[in-house]
Design a protein around this nucleic acid. Structure first.
Length: 467
RNA sequence: GCUCCCUUCGUCUAGAGGCCUAGGACGGAGCCCUCUCAAGGCUUAAACGCGGGUUCGAAUCCCGCAGGGAGCGCCA
């Protein structure tokens, strides 16, 4: 039997980090077993579902490169099928019409709550033979009243529900539209899903779904309920926690491989290993190694992983990503150093591309003003002789390369009896405008002789003017 | 209220009765390296929710309790 998994988001918002983790585990499971990964959009709630949200989810999946083998399928396009199945259940007697009004149901629930009982439909229309005139009925599933339903969950283990805890849920509304739990069941059946991997907020729905499946003469799939992902403070994920949309991570300068690697370690582990390539994840992923308890996201660790992938990534790829971010912050790249050169110079010191892009700015744009603190400390009359001597040296430097610049700097410092820092730091402020940059030799090389000298001149003037 | 799920350093986790003086990772602290920022190297603090059992022996098995979460809709 080929493994078939599905990721089934409802398009009421962007793809958030929890949904992405579920998608990843579904994807990994199917990949690991050489199976099929299906994307299904659960848009039966026409009020809350939007086209934009569908697109946002698709974009998020594409960015993470979690591609579906089948789909996307849309539940709203399958209403005829759901109604057909419901009709069949009516005929076979596993479902029935219910004429209860909303008010009646509310009153019933209120009474039950008052009696400290679990609110549930009491089945009063179960054996009704005649329709109630003037009322369009809903269709309810006739849930078994006796016995137990056992979920053999791949992560939670054996979970037992008494059938009398489950009531007769509505499968088709009075407007003729099917409900969520029913659509899921019909889809999982029709799409021949073998493994349902989803958030554990669905664990309580599972026995109901299994019972409907059984009533349809279908063997339920294997279930695996994943623990929730919480915000950094250990409470439920929400917008309050900052980046909850997967695409927000891209904007914040994260690489998809870092996000994926971070996500895979949330609720799953393989011994002490922390870094996993995509191939390793596929090879090593096993549902048995999935945890049972919820986990909080830890932005620091994501940052660390991101930095790891920036440090070790392919230059060309990283350069493309840097380009995307430079465009975003409005940097004109028509003149200036190569992006690969910039990545190389910064990949050991940038945690995100957002940071790298900001740090790249001065390579493309003139220094308009100096960082006041850095200038006050480094652009002082005392450094003037050093800067001027160095300028002479650099004008005449035969080869404008990092090693040659490195030597020139060291020689000048030595000749003047200065520590390198006394020369390098003022120079850094002069050419970058601030106190932070890649190593000064690499920075100068990237900047080019003309630009570097012009900025030194400007700094020299700045000092003279202040003095 | 009822049903179900969960509980190891701050966080992610290893741990399948003796290998645990509870390991790793992020973060923290300290030191080294150093032209800034980083990176890197070394060192270090930090956890089995509580109470009962079972057993020669429990983080691991059982039972309670407490705390957290989810579900109980003509929402998904």
């Amino acid at each position: 039997m080929t493994v078939r998994t599905r990721f089934a988001p409802s398009p009421t918002g962007y793809l958030h980090i929890g949904g992405a983790r579920t998608a990843l585990f579904c994807w990994l499971y199917s990949r690991h077993h050489g199976g099929t990964f299906i994307l299904r959009v659960e848009d039966t709630d026409r009020e809350r579902s939007t086209e934009a949200a569908v697109q946002a989810i698709l974009d998020g999946m594409a960015w993470l490169d979690l591609n579906a083998d089948e789909g996307p399928f849309y539940q709203t396009q399958r209403f005829d099928r759901y109604r057909e199945v419901a009709r069949g259940m009516l005929e076979s007697g596993t479902a029935y019409h219910c004429y209860c009004s909303k008010e009646e149901l509310d009153a019933m629930r209120a009474e039950q709550m008052a009696r400290k009982e679990k609110p549930r439909y009491d089945g009063r229309c179960r054996d009704r033979k005649e329709p109630k005139p003037g009322v369009t009925p809903v269709i309810r599933f006739k849930n078994p009243q006796e016995g137990q339903t056992v979920v053999e969950d791949a992560v939670k283990g054996r979970v037992v529900f008494d059938n009398h805890e489950l009531d007769d849920l509505i499968i088709v509304r009075s407007d003729g539209n099917p409900t969520y739990n029913f659509c899921v069941v019909v889809d999982d059946m029709d799409m021949r899903i073998t493994h349902v991997i989803r958030g554990d907020d669905h664990l309580n729905n599972t026995p109901r779904q299994m019972n409907i499946l059984k009533a349809l003469g279908f063997t339920p799939p294997q279930y695996a309920h994943l623990p929730m992902i919480l915000g950094p403070d250990g409470t439920k994920l929400s917008k309050r926690h900052g980046a909850v949309s997967v695409m927000q991570y891209r904007e914040d300068g994260y690489l998809p491989e870092a996000v994926l690697n971070y996500l895979v370690r949330l609720g799953w582990s393989h011994g002490d290993q922390e870094v996993f390539s995509r191939e390793e994840m596929v090879k090593l992923f096993d549902i048995k190694d999935v945890n049972t308890s919820a986990s909080a996201i830890n932005p620091q660790k994501l940052l660390w992983l991101n930095q790891h992938y920036i440090k070790t990534g392919d230059l060309k790829r990283l350069a493309d990503e840097l380009k995307w971010h430079l465009e975003r912050i409005g940097v004109d790249m028509s003149k200036g150093p190569s992006l690969e050169g910039l990545v190389k110079a910064q990949q050991e010191r940038a945690k995100t591309f957002k940071e790298m892009a900001e740090g790249s700015r001065f390579f493309f744009e003139d220094v308009k003003e100096y960082d006041p603190q850095a200038a006050a400390k480094n652009l002082t009359p005392e450094v003037l002789p050093g800067l001027m001597t160095l300028r002479e040296k650099l004008v005449a430097l035969p080869e404008w390369s990092a090693p040659a610049l490195h030597d020139a700097l060291n020689q000048t410092a030595e000749a003047l009896g200065l520590k390198l820092g006394k020369l390098a730091q003022p120079l850094r402020v002069a050419v970058s405008g601030g106190g932070v940059s890649p190593p000064i030799d690499a920075t100068l090389e990237l900047l080019g002789r003309e630009t570097a000298l012009a900025r030194m001149d400007r700094a020299i003037k700045h000092i003279e003017k202040a003095a």
